[in-house]
Amino acid sequence: MKNNQILLCCAMLALAACSSADKYTIRGTWEDGAGQTVYLKTGDDPKQLVTIDSAVVKSDNSFTIRCKAPAEMTPAVLVTPESRTELLLYRSGRPVDVKIWSEMRRKLKPGQTDSVDVKVQLMKLVNPDPETAVYLSGRDMASGHAFISLGGMFMLMNAQEQGLSLDSVFNVKKQMEEAFEQSLEKFLDSTKNFRSSTFFIRDFVLKTRSFAEAQRWYDSLTPAVKESPEGQMLFSAIERDSKFNVGGTPDNFTLPTPDGDTLALYSLRGHIVLLDFWASWCGPCLAEAPNVKKIYEKYHDKGLEVLGVSLDKEGDHDKWVAAIEKHGLNWKHVSSLKGWDCPVAKQFNVTGIPRMYILDREGKIIAQDLRGEELAKKMDEIFADAQ
């Protein structure tokens, strides 16, 4: 009888543990937020998040969201009209604690030159679990990289406007980039046993770094992480993107030409193809154009085709055509006229332009991200081997 009671207790404890792990609970306090609503949203597109739950703040300024936990780790956002915080939903069995409060900060108001005290609402997770902490650190790393890139661009622009030497600006920018690289290596090396690190590799490394680097960091993950649903998700993303990197053969695509016809990538099979992502408004792209023009004139008769994929927007068709004519870009051109939402640019993970790929006669990518002398030298090598 006693043994049966012990077994029953163990079974009840196990059931309670499973029930707890199968739920996620978000507990929070919202300073002076009684009666307000907090929304839990998720989705792949930040502009089209879907509300999956919500809670009204009680009279004591507390709120609770308690629902069934997803089978896989799911990035989500907790949102109010004035603040938000990212979090990670999964079967951890551990509640998520959130704090929402307001404080005065010095800011510039629109149309004013002097800073003023402005009341802002803030939200943060309190003591997030290790997996969530890694996920949030990865998001911070990505934001830091964007800040460095944007800050470097503004420093260069200001230096040029003021007629200052660019050497010191380049040195500062280089130091910032080197510091980021060190932080990136340290972060990835220290998080290879965390399932949530796969989101950072997929969303940042795979999209902004070389494919070889993303593959290297995937290989460094522990077997347990690779075998997890998140690891399999990352593997699928890497396998998919392998088509659009050196050694891969991209899927065919068809886009409109300037005259309203269409052109398919696969129609250029049998030629060496320089796939050039650019835009009429892109200064660095137009600065690279004379080099591409020289290469095209040198090797077009020997089998080189250049295909320009413009990231101009709808309504800029005339600017696109004018740039082609003005700069004598006498090769093949296509564009979806959807700007950065161009489906082909997304397939190739184009996050900056100019971006170039060289495809061999069978359509396989044999080089990418070459410009200037490096691009010319590579073309010389390709056509020397073809003789």
Rank of each mutant, 00 (worst) to 15 (best):
G270D: 13
P290K: 09
W281N: 05
K298G: 01
Y296W: 13
Y266D: 15
K294I: 05
L268C: 13
K313F: 04
G260L: 15
G260N: 07
C282Q: 08
D312I: 12
L307E: 09
K294C: 05
I295E: 07
A264W: 02
C282G: 08
C282Y: 07
L275Q: 03
G260Q: 14
D301W: 01
G270F: 09
D312M: 12
L275K: 04
L265G: 08
G303V: 11
K293N: 14
G283M: 07
S310T: 05
L311W: 10
L307M: 09
D276W: 02
Y266C: 02
D301K: 14
L311H: 04
C282M: 05
V306F: 01
H271G: 04
L307K: 08
G260V: 09
A287D: 12
L304G: 08
L274F: 03
F277A: 00
S280L: 08
A287L: 07
Y266M: 03
A279F: 11
G303H: 10
L286A: 06
V292C: 05
Y299M: 06
A279N: 02
E297H: 11
L268R: 06
C282R: 10
D276P: 08
E297G: 02
D312H: 05
G283W: 00
C285V: 04
L304E: 04
L263N: 07
K298L: 09
R269Q: 13
W281Q: 06
G270Q: 13
D312W: 06
K302F: 11
A279I: 11
K313G: 01
P290F: 10
V306S: 12
P290A: 09
E288N: 08
D276M: 02
C282P: 07
G283H: 10
P290T: 14
T262C: 06
F277S: 00
D276V: 05
V273A: 07
V273P: 04
E305Y: 05
V309H: 00
G270W: 09
K298W: 01
V309I: 15
S310K: 03
V306G: 10
V309A: 01
P284V: 10
D312A: 07
V306Q: 12
H300L: 00
P284R: 06
D312N: 08
E305N: 07
V306D: 09
C282A: 05
G303A: 07
D301S: 13
G260Y: 12
G303C: 11
G270N: 12
L268Q: 10
A289K: 04
A287V: 15
